[in-house]
Design a protein around this nucleic acid. Structure first.
Lengths: 208, 208
DNA sequence: ACTAGATTCAAACAGTTGTTTGATACACTT
DNA sequence: AAGTGTATCAAACAACTGTTTGAATCTAGT
């Protein structure tokens, strides 16, 4: 293993990540990846044992980043009332989705894996989705003032979760109207909207 | 044109619809379609001029059905206060999504076209999404008591819309937990939840 | 019965896919 | 300087893609 070897391996990894995120596993060819990474066609098989080997490694990196997003949301709301915890969760999520430049491909990648699953989806569900929803459900149970297995908890968590998801890269919204562009300013406005909208909804559901 | 001719044409159409909905345009081969429709490999090219010709025709049928869903939602809320119009919209949408048996492929098909667009997406946006969102935004403007171009209108419409979308067939939810099954009973409960949650959110956003 | 047009079919087409191969170039140790 | 193991490369591989072809089959009109 030499320094140059790791370089081509890394180039394949990042080229594959961007292409898989943009077009999905099936529509990206090994030749596309190698052309973008300036490597030979056989390089993917040599370094990763095949196309799915490269995909699995890209997915592992994406999973690690998303786990850190969940952790960041948790820390941002630590030792605060549940209302602030929810607001922190929404804010961290939205800013990571559109903000952090060189990680923006990850959320597009995950969204694609969820709508068009490969066998690797189970890993994502177990290691990312379930812990994240468990944290969100904990906040909901506090806000609703009811046990965590109350059916209202899961429903409110869903309502919050999908509003956050809707801010991800989405081919429809971008073609609908220029008013749906995601800039840092509209992002803060959207965080406020989702938090206020959802907190009012939760309070009403919690009531008599 | 004879009766039997229309039969194979129709078989191709329905086989293509189901397969396109389940796996997407790229992952379905014309040989898959013809095998399912018990027709020769050349049948697709003969009757539809090619794979995309068949896809376009499937999409047109889906567009017509979705337009009728929008119309049904509009009629269900006609001459009622905006709160009831919103509830009717959510109810019609959810019942059509999971309810009507032999049309259930349509929503899966549309969801796939939206997350993994073909050139035909523009037709869907113009003829389905925009009219539907325009109707929903009208209700929002009434509920908020503000002009329709107020930024809060689009945001609230988004919040309602994505909660409805989340009830569509979704590979993640079905693998998460059996608690997310969509039966006629949970469907009514979900309609109530989304309507109550959203109306409270809208009222809060409309306030001072 | 015969023709004309429409439909079906097996076979083959050219292009692309992921993967394999064997030779070559390279850096490092002995 | 010879040897060793790793990495790259052009070329070829078999399998699969959508589409075309030309003959065979069928139906309807005269």
């Amino acid at each position: 293993m030499k320094a140059e070897d790791q370089e081509t391996r890394g180039r394949l990894l990042s080229a594959g990540a961007r292409l898989f995120a943009e077009h999905g596993f099936a529509k990206v060819t090994v030749r596309d990846i190698c052309r973008k990474a300036v490597a030979n066609v056989a390089a993917v098989n040599y370094h990763f044992g095949g196309k799915v080997g490269l995909y699995d490694e890209v997915l592992q990196a994406a999973v690690r980043t998303m786990q850190s997003t969940t952790e960041a949301a948790r820390e941002a709301g630590a030792q605060q009332p549940p209302e602030q915890q929810l607001r922190a969760y929404i804010g961290v999520f939205l800013h990571r989705v559109v903000g952090s430049g060189h990680d923006s491909w990850i959320h597009q990648f995950m969204l694609r894996e969820m709508s068009d699953p490969t066998p690797a989806l189970d890993i994502v569900i177990e290691q990312v989705i379930k812990p994240r929803m468990a944290y969100l459900c904990g906040i909901m149970a506090e806000l609703l003032g009811c046990p965590i297995d109350d059916p209202r908890v899961a429903r409110c968590a869903m309502s919050v979760h999908v509003q956050c998801l809707s801010q991800m890269h989405n081919p429809v919204a971008s073609r609908m109207s220029p008013a749906f562009e995601r800039t840092p300013e509209t992002l803060d406005a959207m965080t406020d909207h989702i938090a206020r909208f959802s907190l009012a909804g939760i309070r009403d559901i919690a009531g008599p």
